[in-house]
Design a protein around this nucleic acid. Sequence first.
DNA 1: CCTATATTTCAATAATCGTTGAAATATTGA
DNA 2: TCAATATTTCAACGATTATTGAAATATAGG
Lengths: 98, 98
Amino acid sequence: MDIDLAVRQLAALAQQTRLAIFKSLVVAGADGIGAGELASRALIAPNALSFHAKELRHAGLIRSDIRGRSVIYFAELDTMRALVAYLLENCCVGFDVQ
Amino acid sequence: MDIDLAVRQLAALAQQTRLAIFKSLVVAGADGIGAGELASRALIAPNALSFHAKELRHAGLIRSDIRGRSVIYFAELDTMRALVAYLLENCCVGFDVQ
DNA sequence: CCTATATTTCAATAATCGTTGAAATATTGA
DNA sequence: TCAATATTTCAACGATTATTGAAATATAGG
């Protein structure tokens, strides 16, 4: 993990709507959530959802599968865990979780 | 930790210069680093350092002490740890560190 | 007190980001 | 095939952010 990648991923999460979307996807787990459902949960228009999802996808934090005429999004937990590991190693100094 | 605070802190870290500054301050620990030294390390003008430091300070991620005509900055590790704890609890799902 | 040093504030500009509406693309089912 | 549904793309706009230079503030030391 280099600092550029960390910055891009932090930037993707550093926005109300996107962090909320990502949290929803984490909770949803392997089921994922469809684009329409995500948009209505976030109270944003479908095209706005598409915009924010693209940001998260470009940062590697989510992925999408097309099913019929729907798109289902999933959190990429490994990416998120790598980011948190980076923060723990570089920015926390002896922070013992739990 | 509410989502608004998390977003503000993530945004403060989601920028090359500021993440680098913060990492330097974490490494420096209790000694802190002066504003001039931070600016030259980051290859930015003093006023730019002042701008970015203010962003970090408003997010609660650093603090500053005035010593004579110098200003020394310190990482606020507790804030950072709280942010990482939030991410671990809400966005990582059973990520066991180490 | 005056000058040099250290940092911040202010203003201007360019760049990036977020939102909105309209149009385009693709898939489903009648 | 046609209409309806689901999502993305595109363009425009306003808002926020980052950078730069100039001026202001404050302290230290001669």
